[in-house]
């Protein structure tokens, strides 16, 4: 039962809400209030576009506790267009094989169910192959902050 942690992380988990550094304009994810590039204070919200590319990936066949029902599934390091790398599951892969450099977009999905059908449902970001035409922008909310 980790409800306080899920609750605390909901903004970043549901919609890739990170931060932007007011000093050097670095985009920061996950939010940490200190810019990893210049060391300055960085508390301004920034909504990532959700677009990125697969930097590396692996297939999980022996899943950790809580994720068994989804195995096998693919976990990737995704390089977001704005710079940061995030680790996340890939979803809705269809017949297309995963490849390094594959363009992906963020979707909010159910990550796991807590506690034997009695606990809370945990939601968060995953990435799927970009599958719609160029001028579509389905992934994320507008600029926050």
């Amino acid at each position: 039962m980790e409800n306080p942690r899920y609750w605390r992380l909901k903004k970043q988990r549901y919609s890739l809400l990170g931060e932007v550094c007011p000093h050097c304009d670095s985009k920061i994810f996950p939010p940490r209030d200190i810019c990893p590039e210049c060391g300055g204070e960085a508390k301004t919200d920034f909504a990532f576009s959700g677009k990125g590319k697969v930097y590396s990936y692996t297939v999980m066949r022996d899943a950790p506790a809580g994720y068994e029902q989804n195995a096998p599934y693919t976990v990737a390091i995704v390089a977001l267009d704005e710079g940061p790398m995030v680790t996340a599951q890939l979803t809705d892969l269809g017949e297309e094989p995963v490849r390094i450099g594959m363009p992906v977009e963020m979707v909010t999905r159910k990550l796991r169910e807590d506690g034997e059908k009695k606990g809370i449902l945990v939601y968060g970001y995953k990435f799927r192959p970009i599958c719609f035409h160029e001028n579509s922008q389905p992934a994320s909310q507008g600029q926050a902050g």
């Binding site: 979803t91 979707v107 909010t108 999905r109 159910k110 990550l111 449902l121 939601y123 995953k126 389905p138």
Partner: peptide, 10 residues
Amino acid sequence: DEDVITMSIE
């Protein structure tokens, strides 16, 4: 990994 909440979000 989909339900009414995730589909509603998209």
